[in-house]
């Protein structure tokens, strides 16, 4: 099985904007309800699970680039790389069967969370001197700096505190969304589907 096999037809192309819209919605809800989470990668993860790692990557990267370039939120621009990697990671995990049951989905969530941490931390350090812009995470960062720990370590902790719980909640939502989708929809994204002849 080729993990990265991808269909680039109208079905997957239309899926991507829908996923980006879902990202936006999640983010809006999180900020409206003042949750200490981002919830801005629900769509990216759905895209990765349905369309595979490449579609996941496009969902993630396009999400940040579009909002960065056109909605004036250019802080998200530099995290396009993080979103891209989350999409790839979730896509691969899903193709390996790690979205089939609830416990496996949690494992996927942890992987996605760690990927986010590994990619975001250097970006945080380079662009913001280590902060993430999330109140809870930045309190952790401030504490580590006051305690004299290195910036990289502090920023890493900052990210872990924010990203891992965030991805767990996100993937739980994704798991239930996927469970509810009708097969006549998910069949459209099957990269290996062939037309069978009846005569």
């Amino acid at each position: 099985m080729n993990l990265f096999k991808t269909k680039f037809d109208a079905a997957t192309i239309v899926l991507i904007p829908a996923c980006i819209g879902i990202n936006y919605l999640g983010k809006m809800f999180a900020s409206l309800l003042k949750l200490p989470l981002w919830l801005d990668s629900i769509g990216t993860c759905i895209g990765g699970c349905l369309g595979g790692p490449v579609i996941g990557a496009i969902c993630g990267a396009a999400n940040n680039l579009i909002y960065g370039f056109t909605a004036g939120d250019n802080i998200t621009l530099i995290y396009a790389l993080t979103s891209l990697c989350i999409g790839v990671a979730v896509g691969i995990m899903s193709r390996l069967g790690f979205m089939k049951s609830f416990p496996k989905a949690i494992l996927t969530a942890v992987v996605a969370g760690l990927v986010a941490v590994v990619i975001s931390t250097p970006l945080n350090v380079v662009f913001w001197g280590g902060t993430t812009g999330n109140v809870w995470g930045d309190m952790v960062f401030a504490a580590t700096q006051a305690a004299g720990m290195p910036v990289l370590l502090g920023s890493l902790l900052d990210e872990i505190v924010v990203d891992v719980p965030d991805k767990i909640i996100t993937l739980i939502i994704v798991f239930f969304v996927l469970k509810g989708l009708p097969q006549k929809l998910t069949a459209l994204y099957d990269a290996n589907a062939k037309v069978e002849r009846l005569d």
Binding site: L188, D190, K194, R197, L198, D199
Partner: peptide, 11 residues
């Protein structure tokens, strides 16, 4: 049918 939906086709 069948190019977009795939499935089984005859005739």
């Amino acid at each position: 049918v069948p190019q977009f939906y795939k499935g089984a086709y005859g005739g």
